[in-house]
Design a protein around this nucleic acid. Sequence first.
DNA 1: TTGTCAAGACGAAACGTCTCGTCTCTTCAA
DNA 2: TTGAAGAGACGAGACGTTTCGTCTTGACAA
Lengths: 206, 206
Amino acid sequence: MATETQRSTGRRRNPATRATILATAFDVVAELGYAGLTIEKVAARAGVGKQTIYRWWPNKGALVLDAVLERTAGSGPEGADGAPAELPDTGDLEADLIAVLVATVAEFADPDFDRALRGLTAAIIEDAELAGAYRERLDGPMRELKKRRLRRAQEVGQLDPDVDLDLAVDLVFAPVAQRWTERSGDLTPDGARAVVRHALRGLAAR
Amino acid sequence: MATETQRSTGRRRNPATRATILATAFDVVAELGYAGLTIEKVAARAGVGKQTIYRWWPNKGALVLDAVLERTAGSGPEGADGAPAELPDTGDLEADLIAVLVATVAEFADPDFDRALRGLTAAIIEDAELAGAYRERLDGPMRELKKRRLRRAQEVGQLDPDVDLDLAVDLVFAPVAQRWTERSGDLTPDGARAVVRHALRGLAAR
DNA sequence: TTGTCAAGACGAAACGTCTCGTCTCTTCAA
DNA sequence: TTGAAGAGACGAGACGTTTCGTCTTGACAA
C-alpha cells in the first residue's frame, strides 16, 4: 500500500478495476457497516474476482481506508490540481475555526459518510498498523493544516506563543470528534461555535 | 439485560456461571481483541455451553460491555457499599481535575484494560443501541460525577456560571480520550496537566 | 514470457439454532 | 410437612450456513 512499486514486465494493474473496487467498498461499508462488509460481497458487486482484491489489499481495514481516502480526495490537503490547500484565513481566527468545525459537523450529518467513517474508525481502533497509515495519510495532513493556521495566529499575537500546537488542535477539535464517536450529544453548528469560543479563550495570548 | 426479570418457576440463573463467563470474556478480549473474540472460544475457555451465553447476551458487543462493566465495578460512581462516590474536591479545581485525568491516563497504560476498552469501543462505534447502553451504564454516570464537580466550582465562582456543563466536560476530557482513540500522540501526565490548564483558562469566570 | 483478471472450488473456522440428558429450584396437592 | 411434577438453567455438541483466505484454471494484454 505505502509503496505501490511497478513491476517490470507482464500486464499492468488496471486503474479502472482499482477504482471500481474502492467505490464499491465505500458503498458497501456505507450501507452495511464495517462488520457487514465482506470481501466476497465487494467482489461480487464490483464484478471482480476475490483474488484481485486479496492481491492488492491485505485485509478489510486497508481496503476501507483506501476507499475513504479515494472518496475524500479533493477535500484533503491537496486540491484537485495537487496544490496544497489551506484552512481559511480571514484574519478572524475564531470565525475561521468555526467555519472548519461547522463543515466537519455537516460532513458527519451525511449518513453514508458517517457510516463509512465509523467503519474506518472501527478498523483503526484495534489495528495499530492501520491507525498509523490513517494518521499518515488522512489525519496527519489535516492536522498539519490546522497547526499552520494556528501558527499564523501565534505570529499575529492572537494565540499564546508558548502553547504546544498539537495540544491546541486537540482542544479545539477533539470535543466534537469525541461526541461523534460516542454519540454523546447532538452535533450542531451552535455547539461547534461554543467549543471554539471557549477553547480559544483558554489558548489566547495573555 | 436492562430488566432482568425473575421467572416464577424453575431453576434460577447461576450467578457464578455469569461471573465466570464475564471474567473469561474480559480475558479473551484483552488477549485477542474484539475481532479475535469468539463466542465459541469464550464458551470453551469458561467450560460452558454456547447456548448459555446466547441465552443471556444477544451478541458479542453486549457481552463485552458487561465484561468491562463487571471488571470496572468498584471504580465506578458507586463504591463497594453502593454509596455514590464523588470526584475529589479539595477546593483546588485544577489539581482535582488533573488527578482524575492522570488516573485515566494510568488506566490506559494497562495493556489488558487498553485492549478490552478498545474492543468495547470497536463494538460501540458501529452499534447505536450498544452505544446507548454504554452511555447509560458507564459513560453517563461518570459524566454526572464530572458535572457535579464542575457545578460546585461554578457555585464557588471558579467557573463561568453561564457555560454549559456538558461542553465543559468535553473540553476537559475529550482531548485525552481522542488521543487514546486515534493513537495520535503520547498520553503523559504532563500532557494531561497542560490540557486541564488551558481548558480551565477557557472556562474560568471572567 | 510474465503478470493481471474473472470465476469459482476448496477446507477451516465461526456463526446462531437446535436437541439432548442432567441438574436444581419452585409450586402445589396430599 | 412433604414429596411428586413441572419449569428452566446448564454442558455438550450436532446441524446447516456463511465467510474466510488460498489455490487453480483459462483468457488476455504487455
